[in-house]
Design a binder for these strands. Structure first.
Lengths: 204, 204
DNA sequence: ACCGATCTTATACGAAAGTCTAGCAGACTA
DNA sequence: TAGTCTGCTAGACTTTCGTATAAGATCGGT
């Protein structure tokens, strides 16, 4: 089982490598960023599985995933992520990833997932699927209305009220109200502070 | 060597535990958040070393550090962090932490550091100390003037131009200018987007 | 001494953000 | 059926932000 692992956190990379090697008998090649991962893909041919950290130099969101997929000759590429917004997981799968692994998953589960994906099976943790349907993902989101969450998403992209209004088919004034209530609920003085709070909480 | 490890990423926690146990002969107690860590501190008495993830339910910045320090009866408490702003490291040490461990550090180095800190020595990775003095910490900061960095800091706290001006003893118009150049350099359309970019890059 | 870069202040104007008041629809209760 | 609560929408108004243009001050370096 030949696996390529790319993560810029040495500690995470080292310990995961050690674990998969000793407990799973895997043969790991580890790199620190997408650039070097691409080089390994060229030099060492296709791997049974490629694991890419979502937040890593060179990734540019799911851009790196696309490139790795092309370079791995049809074999699977999966995304590792520390903060795991359900949305990103869905996007990754849509983009062709063979799996999405949140770091909140246990080491033994990781090993099982890696074996699955190496065999060509698509793997997504059950919690994420459930979360999609039921759970509020984050305590902060629970106290926000659906509209407010949509508006907050716009805020975090640095959109103006007018842009948000256009995207949601609403009037600009309406957005202003939502922004105000968002600021109240998030204990922020203005849109920027609200966006920062949401970002820190790991939403979006 | 009895160690309490608290990190909400199961994967990270499991693999680090396994590594420190097998390679370092440590006896690890692992928990998922600060609340449970405090319980373990009460139940299992003082540990030789407590490792706390900086981004973890219940931490509230360095608030959790203070509480853990009190509960561990004089023995050391260190901070683990994924994104490692030098500023936070300094603050942690000032608050009484016995060490600061970025996850970009290798597993073997971690083991050494843990042995050091268990023996009561303060540990900070050399790169952080150097960074403080020389390196630009982040490529993005390199192209910003000192003033611009100060203003950007204000932006990331959601301050208004007027507030920033007061804090820096400048006129509001001056801040506007800096905000404009910041938006140019960070490729942002407005202050909110600039703040988000800075946040994503791990600054502040 | 000159040049260029950075930082500073000023005036002014259009655009966007933020505040206030108020009306309307659906849901739940009595 | 009326009452009430919550979420969504709207118009008018004030404040803040963003931009343009101009110009003085300081500092380091060819």
């Amino acid at each position: 089982m030949r696996i390529l692992l790319a993560d810029d956190h040495d500690m995470v990379r080292d310990t995961i490598s050690a674990y998969l090697t000793s407990e799973g008998g895997a043969e790991i090649t580890a790199t620190t960023d997408l650039h070097r991962a691409m080089q390994e893909l060229e030099d060492q041919g296709p791997f049974d599985l490629v694991l890419l950290d979502y937040n890593m130099p060179g990734m540019n969101g799911l851009d790196g995933l696309q490139r790795a997929l092309k370079a791995n000759g049809g074999r699977g590429v999966a995304i590792l992520s520390g903060s795991a917004p359900t949305r990103t997981a869905q996007d990754a799968l849509d983009a062709g990833a063979i799996g999405f692994i949140p770091k909140t998953m246990g080491a033994q589960s990781l090993l099982n997932a890696v074996r699955f994906m190496s065999a060509g099976e698509i793997y997504v943790p059950v919690e994420l699927m459930r979360e999609e349907a039921s759970a509020p993902a984050h305590p902060l989101l629970a106290q926000l209305s659906p509209r407010e969450i949509e508006v907050l998403s716009g805020l975090c992209q640095g959109q103006s009220n007018k842009e948000i209004a256009r995207d949601l088919n609403l009037q600009e004034v309406t957005i202003k109200l939502h922004v105000r209530t968002l600021c109240r609920k998030l204990d922020a003085k203005n849109r920027t502070q609200a966006a920062m709070t949401a970002k820190e909480a790991g939403l979006f």
